[in-house]
Design a protein around this nucleic acid. Structure first.
Length: 666
DNA sequence: GAGCACTGC
């Protein structure tokens, strides 16, 4: 920790631009929102347009007001107005807010639809829903005929679902026009100024700007490049702490749990030894895997004379809003996932944020009063940041996206009209994967779903897991596979507080299966069911009860789909061999073999891999395993392993392994 | 031999 002799970085900041952006307090009446002044002309314009791009700063009221305006003047009548959101909470709270403003009961005129929760009725005209939900609806109705207006909100976030929806609504709009059906109005709403892409994509749709109400934010850059952003952040925090009034809170953006926990400790230690007269300091970590009650602490106001310092991941960038933040300290770093289609490898790495992300972070300072943002990088470096974060669709395994597009009967997925095209390699890799799973086939020169593929598309799952479910009757273990797949599609039900590591290990022993992680999870679930999900039991056994209940909802949903598809549901009871066979048959492309030197090599691409330390097989050396996925951090790790017989793999996909052997020989 | 950002159906 090299202390800078010229003084801490904060002293060397220089002032720069003042951006805008903001949120009004909840009590602000509809009519005083900035958008209200523009209502007449806005509606006159929108009435004539097929598509429009609406840029509104936070606090312009666009999301709550526009759907009501459209409804009030009968634009899109008859038919529904859909407003999509990337997050569930947003869909629910916005619907509640708008229902209240319209003085109606939620679920009547105004409703919402999210997974596991549909609060709409025949009367509903304005429907808030998650983008994933609208996408799923599109499988049954690619022309989205229920809707006369679709508003895609938070478009700048570019979630994988929004990106696919762009193409789906554009196609639906065009087809409805061609067939002389009721027109579909598409409105893209975004918070950022990067609008050319949206406008161009929607055939040159006009861009309409809405004013917001943002308090000014003063931005400071470092004068010199910082070699250690953590050290720089520490110095900045205590610089602010010594100079600013105690009522002004600080939000610091860091990259991950470990870093945040370490820094929390350091800050707490330092704050104990501050000079007399310095305000007290409460340091609070904030990241997604932090148990909910602990997350809530970040929202509580601190007592007078005490400053709140929140050390957060990018969860505070979009998902969580904390009021009363005066200072933002932006390290300019983020931990993000990338995907390489050739190796099937996910890489989780710390990298620089984009300019858009930096602005988003900065904006967290000026929500209720003027704010100050310290950027722990130079202005020159900032200018070199990427303009936008790479859209998720260019960073992901596309297997489920391609399966979804085929279910929507898109004629050629390789030429699908994406706003930002994923690489052809990534699409081809997804097609190959679906081919291996038996989900696709060529018909008259076109890629189409097989009957199995159609069934797979019915599940909201990664295709290899849908395949596992659909294969399970053959192995008489559908109930068990449903459980395992459900457990794998929620956040971990195993709670691992680092401070109680030994205790956790001791108590977890009884669940561990030498056959791997999948069967260990199954044991946990069975034990959980045996005690009816008893809360005390969860606590004693370090089981996350909330994720367990969520898992049960997922399981029920998947089970319903099985029933609809007439998948026979049987239990294998104590026979675990069949369960592992079923997993081998659906995860065969993710297999690895023990090498003579004690390392592992993937069967698919002969990549050197290791067993992830979180796996129950970490200290074992099974000769052959299948795994859920690969993750590269410091090394390349297999996650969620299941012990299998090498013979089962060959039996699962003889053609594939024959091909592999041939390539290996060449 | 040692580790995991964030959403969503």
């Amino acid at each position: 920790m090299a202390q800078d002799r010229e003084g801490p970085p904060a002293k060397r900041f220089k002032a720069a631009a003042q951006p805008q952006g903001h949120t009004p307090p909840a009590h602000v009446q509809r009519r005083s929102l900035p958008i209200a002044a523009a209502r007449g002309p806005l509606l006159a314009r929108l009435r004539r347009l097929d598509s429009a791009v609406l840029i509104g700063e936070t606090g312009s009221g666009k999301t709550t007001q526009l759907p009501q305006y459209l409804y009030e003047v009968g634009i899109g009548h008859p038919g529904l107005i859909a407003v999509t959101q990337p997050r569930r909470v947003a869909a629910v709270t916005l619907a509640a807010r708008v229902a209240e403003e319209k003085r109606t009961e939620l679920g009547k005129l105004v409703g919402y639809t999210v997974r596991f929760d549909d609060c709409t009725s025949a009367e509903t005209r304005i429907r808030f829903l998650t983008d994933g939900m609208l996408l799923r609806e599109a499988i049954g109705d690619p022309l989205l005929q229920k809707y006369s207006v679709v508003i895609l909100d938070e478009a700048h976030e570019r979630t994988i679902h929004t990106d696919v929806l762009f193409g789906v609504v554009k196609a639906a709009q065009r087809k409805r026009k061609e067939r002389g059906l009721k027109p579909l109005k598409v409105i893209i709403m975004s918070a950022t100024m990067d609008v050319d892409l949206f406008s161009q994509y929607f055939n040159g749709a006009p861009v309409i700007y809405l004013e917001g109400r943002q308090h000014p934010i003063e931005i400071f850059y470092t004068k010199e490049r910082q070699s250690d952003y953590i050290q720089a952040a520490l110095v900045s925090i205590f610089q602010i702490h010594q100079e600013a009034p105690a009522c002004q809170d600080i939000l610091v953006f860091l990259t991950g749990q470990e870093e945040i926990e370490a820094m929390t400790k350091t800050c707490r230690d330092i704050s104990k030894h501050l000079p007399e007269g310095c305000p007290r300091m409460t340091v609070l970590p904030l990241y997604a895997s932090l148990p909910h009650p602990q997350q809530l602490r970040a929202f509580k106001p601190t007592p007078e004379g005490c400053r709140k310092v929140i050390l957060s991941t990018n969860i505070a960038e979009t998902s969580i809003t904390i009021s009363g933040i005066k200072y933002v300290v932006d390290t300019g770093m983020v931990k993000a996932k990338k995907y390489s289609p050739d190796t099937g490898l996910e890489v989780l790495a710390v990298q620089q944020v984009s300019k858009a992300q930096a602005w988003q972070r900065t904006g967290r300072a000026g929500r209720q009063q003027s704010g100050i943002c310290y950027r722990l990088y130079t202005e020159e470096d900032f200018e070199k940041f990427d303009e936008m974060t790479t859209p998720e669709i260019q960073r992901c395994n596309l297997a489920s996206v391609v399966l979804h597009l085929l279910a929507l009967k898109i004629p050629n997925v390789l030429t699908f009209d994406f706003m930002s095209k994923p690489s052809p390699d990534a699409i081809q890799a997804a097609i190959d994967q679906l081919d291996l799973l038996g989900a696709v086939t060529q018909k008259e020169g076109q890629l189409v779903l097989t009957p199995l593929g159609k069934k797979m598309a019915a599940f909201p799952l990664d295709p290899k897991f849908s395949k596992a479910i659909l294969l399970s009757p053959k192995f008489h273990c559908a109930e068990e596979i449903l459980t395992i797949v459900s457990l794998l599609s929620v956040d971990s039900v195993l709670h691992n507080p680092p401070a109680q590591r030994d205790e956790v290990q001791a108590v977890r022993k009884k669940f561990i299966s030498s056959e791997g992680d999948h069967l260990t999870l199954l044991n946990v679930y069975r034990a959980f069911k045996n005690v009816n999900g008893h809360k005390g039991w969860c606590k004693e056994n370090f089981i996350n009860g909330r994720n367990m209940r969520l898992m049960a909802e997922v399981r029920a949903q998947l089970r319903d789909i099985c029933v609809k598809l007439s998948v026979p549901l049987e239990s294998s009871r104590s026979d675990t061999g069949n369960i592992r066979r079923c997993l081998a048959h659906s995860l065969f492309m993710n297999a690895a073999e023990l090498q003579p030197d004690g390392t592992y090599s993937t069967v698919d691409s002969h990549q050197a891999v290791a067993i992830h330390p979180s796996s129950v097989l970490f200290q074992c050396r099974p000769s052959c395993v299948v795994f859920n996925g690969l993750l590269r951090t410091n090394r390349c790790y297999m996650r969620d392993l299941c012990l299998v017989d090498a013979d089962w793999l060959y039996e699962a996909a003889p053609d594939y392994f024959r091909r592999k052997l041939r390539t290996a020989r060449d």
